[in-house]
Amino acid sequence: MQSFQRFDRSTSLFIVLLVVAFMLATFDVRSDGTGVGTTMRDGAQTLFSPLQEAASAVTRPVVGFIDALSDIASLREENDELREENDSLRAEVEEFAGVQAELELLRELNGVEVPDDLPTVVARITSPGSSSFDLDRWINKGSDDGISIGDAVIVEQGLVGRIDQVFDGSARVRLILDPNVRVAVRDAVTDQAGFVTGNNTDPLVLRIFQAEEAAIAGTIVETAGSRFPSGIVVGTVIETAADEAGFGLVAEVEPGVSFSSLDFVIVIVGYSPLDAQPQDDLLEQDPVESEEQPTDTTEPGAETTEPSSETATTEGSP
């Protein structure tokens, strides 16, 4: 009898906890990054960030050793591939040297603003999330360092993601691998505009509606303005793909960034995309100030072709 009562009590508690969890999830999804959930996350981050940093610092050598061990099996194969790739790249480098010089000259001539000119904050990854299903990273810089929601996060190889939650001393980066993230992009060769969406750990998916030309394998895809500063490498087209009977072009894109080896990242804090600002804020702004917004958001093919695709991007992600 006593056992039965205890079972009954625990079942009642079990149901109560399930209901609480269900309600929390509902409120959190509905609140869209604001409200009690954010306050709780802020508190948890404040408490756990120092512990995570300490644990990360203490275990880094061990983690590096284990990581290297797990990579040994694939190193030989990778070495052969790299040797072949090195030979072909060596030949290409000479060919591209002239093109690169020409490109740099054109950039200077056109006065194109590259992302590197914007103010940035260097941050370190403190946590890769709490499970294998997480497509985000936590960094050790937050609003105290000028980081705000929507800021682009990059590394040398290209776009990592964007900030989707900010606290005083930490922030969460939503990776471009997340299926909820869409990035307005431009094919660097054909200059066709489209958008790239995440596909979990699989390659990104490039979609170009009304594509007039095929996306060629090896072509670099870069940001086309809008929510991200333009000109940041997103990835490389894996296989040549063409428009299919008027349904648009769909191609797979290998991200430029190796997400498993991220340690330090750069957060671009000086970019203020027009469509990321609330309408009321825009109306209250001095017209002169409004005119001083970055001009790259009006680049051809960026806003005109995909105005809504990115609006429903990471802002809509949990």
């Binding site: 609480v20 969890a21 269900f22 309600m23 929390l24 999830a25 509902t26 409120f27 959190d28 999804v29 959930g37 709780m40 996350r41 948890a44 981050q45 756990f48 995570q52 946590s127 999330g129 709490s130 499970s131 299903f133 997480d134 497509l135 985000d136 936590w138 969460r172 939503r174 949990p318």
Partner: peptide
């Protein structure tokens, strides 16, 4: 709280 999924 420390991950990217909705609370709960």
């Amino acid at each position: 709280l420390l991950g990217g999924s909705p609370l709960g």
